[in-house]
Structure formats: C-alpha cells, structure tokens
C-alpha cells in the first residue's frame, strides 16, 4: 500500500498537509499521534471514504481504478463507531460483511469470525442490545468475515482499522491484536490507527507517528517511539524504557509514572 502526497481540507481547515506513507503486506502498520493530528482523517483518505488530493495505491493499483466490489474483496475497513438503524442480530451484521467478500460461499465463516473475537453464543442477540465493546467486536467480526483471515489469495488482502481496541477491556485488546498478527502472518496487511502506545510497541512492525497533519517519524517501534519524538509529538514529557526480555519499548507519561501496569508474562 502506497500513499503519496495526501492532502485533505475539511471546510477551510487543512487537516493533512501532504502525507507520504507506505505499508507492506505481512506487517502491522500503526498510525499514532495526539488527538487532532489527523490519524483518522488519514485512514479515511486511505480508504477513499473522504475526498482527498494525492494518490493511494493498493496492491500496485490506484484506488480509483478499483470497482467498489473488487475493492471490498481485497480490503476490509473497521470504522470507529457505527449505529445500526434496524434491529439486526449479531450474526446478520456479520453476514453483511461476509456476503461482500471472496469467501462468501463458505456458510460457516460468520460463526467462526464471531468465535475469533470471543463472541461465541452472541450470534442471535440483537446488535443494539450489546455493550460498546461487544458491538466493536461484532463489527470486527464483520470485517474479518469479509476478508477472511485464513483465506489464501494471490494478492494480499488488507485490514484498515480505526482504533480497533478503543472500547475493549485489556483482555480483549490482546485478543484483537493477536488476530491482527495472525492476519499478517497469513500474508495480509494491517493498517491501524492506534491510541495505546504500549500495544503499538508490542504489535506494530511499522509505526507512523503523526503530528499536526504531517508525518513526524516513520519506522520500527524502537525508532519512532522514542523519548524525544513522543515528547515532541504529544507536547508532554514522556519517557521510554526498553525492558530487556521482550526487547520492545514500554511507554508511560512521565507525569503519572506509576508503573503498576506492567504487562503480565
């Protein structure tokens, strides 16, 4: 996935000033940055949800050359929050995505996708009666059923996720992040807007750090999640430690440095 010189103007405000970035299949690319830095806007531009100036290529083909259903077959998009207008059940929601993908012929996928996001037994519940976190996982299951995690295709498939763990408890955050890793291990590419820098450090292969509509830094987690860069991006003192065993950065805002959140195991 290649994006070149992406510019977005909403109203009279320039949100993105010429973003260039790339993401590779088989990797999780995380987009991080403070509120209002343009993370979600960038993701919306990359998925052609909003108008933008610039070029986006997916699998070597310009986004504008795809027909809607071809695009849906090779990439799924999870948006931040979704209202469902009518009383659909959880399984019916997942089936909406399933029917749009390449694996639509396999009728077991919706239930397997629900099982992956730890929603066994929820299939016949009404979507609007679920909690926020359960709704978010239902939507993830819908997207997973669209670009099925186990499917092998010649061209890589992509997941675009806008804060996929924002409403989830810590256990389900790991469930979801493990799923994205499995997706990349099966040859797919994941581009996720992330809020939690620790999760980003643990899971991201490539990090794009944004600030005020521009890319401040891009590279591996150890290259981008540094004391200097993060303090500059977030405008508050941040210290980054690198614990020995896993070799990944561990981030906490310095002002509230109570390190009782150490990752288990």
């Amino acid at each position: 996935m290649q994006a070149h010189d992406i510019r977005v103007t909403i109203g009279r405000r320039d949100i993105l000033h010429g973003i260039c970035m790339q993401a590779r299949a088989g990797e999780l690319t995380a987009i991080v940055g403070p509120n209002g830095s343009g993370k979600s806007t960038l993701l919306k531009a990359l998925t052609a949800e909003i108008d933008f100036v610039g070029q986006v290529e997916l699998n070597g083909r310009a986004l504008t050359d795809y027909r809607p259903w071809d695009l849906a077959a090779c990439r799924g998009v999870l948006q931040q929050s979704l209202n469902v207008a009518f009383p659909f059940t959880v399984r019916e929601i997942v089936q909406l995505g399933h029917g749009a993908g390449l694996s639509a012929a396999d009728p077991d996928i919706p239930d397997r996708a629900l099982s992956l996001v730890d929603l066994d037994g929820f299939a016949n519940r009404f979507y609007h009666e679920l909690s926020g976190g359960e709704q978010q996982r239902t939507q993830l299951a819908r997207v997973l059923a669209q670009v099925w995690i186990e499917a092998r295709t010649d061209t890589p498939r992509w997941l675009f996720l806008d804060e996929p763990v924002s409403s989830l408890d810590i256990g389900h955050q790991y469930v979801v992040m493990d799923l994205t890793r499995r997706f990349t291990q099966n040859g797919g590419g994941v581009i996720a807007v992330m809020h939690d820098l620790n999760l980003t450090a643990m899971y991201a292969d490539h990090v794009v750090l944004m600030e005020a509509g521009e890319v401040l830094a891009a590279g591996t987690a150890s290259e981008t999640l540094t004391t200097d860069l993060l303090s500059r991006a977030y405008g508050c003192p941040v210290s980054v430690n690198t614990p020995a065993p896993a070799g990944v950065p561990f981030v906490l805002p310095q002002a509230r440095a109570r390190s009782n959140l150490a990752p288990a195991g």
Partner: peptide
C-alpha cells in the same frame, strides 16, 4: 461509508 467499504455502489 460502511456500505461503500463492503463494495456497495
């Protein structure tokens, strides 16, 4: 937007 992402024109 979600409909568009699911390939609906």
């Amino acid at each position: 937007a979600a409909a568009m992402h699911m390939g609906i024109p």
